[in-house]
Amino acid sequence: MDPVIQLDNLSVRLGGRDILRGLDGALGGRTIGLLGPNGAGTSTLINTLLGFHPPSAGSARVLGHSILTGKNDIRRLVGYMPENDCFIGGMTAVEFVKFMAELSGLPPQAALERAHEALFYVGLGESRYRQVGTYSLGMKQLAKLAQSIVHGPKLLILDEPTNGLDPTARQRMIKLVKEMRDSGEMRILLCSHLLRDVEETCEEVVILKAGRIVHRSNLDEERRLNKRFLEIETHGERNGFAEAAVGLGCEFEDLGAGRLRLTLGEGVLIPDIYRIAAERNLQLRRLSHRRDTLEEIFMKAMEAPDGRL
């Protein structure tokens, strides 16, 4: 898969401070999560990719276009949902989204049609003739999402899309992001402080700390790998079980107090583990996959002295 974002020693200095420091790497997942504590530079990275801030050193490419020379090409292909509350005053949702579509280059008739579609798609169909200024916070978030997808972008940048949403609205937003991801029509860059949002929607995650990338991982890959690790609590004689497990091609570690850690060998399935335990009359009282949550990954990244895992 071609990289959506290619960072090449990207540094940004704003207001006399270094905000981003030499970011490198290629991000290519369908959905990329951008994480970081407050002040880590996540929003600055987004703004730099959109050409709002000039890099002080290095460069980056978005969908193959340089942020230095191809700003307009990038903006043509990108949809952006900002973090802050933002809208055009004195307009209904249809007028607002149509206006935004026209600014993206759609002819008026097509813009109107797409505005209706986008508003129905995000769930604001029934209230599309209301002034955006009178919307609740959740509805404003959805209106922002509608304006960001109305022109059919190839990359959608969502900055804190679930900010201020109640659990139902949050679920709805997450569902929409997943639907758009699965449509295959666009890539998504999602910046959020809510790790659960990133975990639920993203395939790839990048963690920033103090303007540096401190961790990058493919969540799908990690999830797959985690499925190979088992933690088991047993009761009874374990020696025969351990030998049998090793015989199947598993790696074995005794954690004491009846607890074992197994790394499943190639082709070994959990029913095989049940079978060898039953054959040796060993009680399995608990069996779980190791689950290295995003929160654990994030906390480790934050705790490491230089920020790197």
Binding site: L50, F52, N72, R75, R76, V78, Y80, P82, N84, C86, F87, I88, M100, L103, S104, G105, Q147, H151
Partner: peptide, 8 residues
């Protein structure tokens, strides 16, 4: 930002 994130 809504204006300038577009080719405008």
């Amino acid at each position: 930002p809504l204006y300038f994130c577009r080719p405008f």
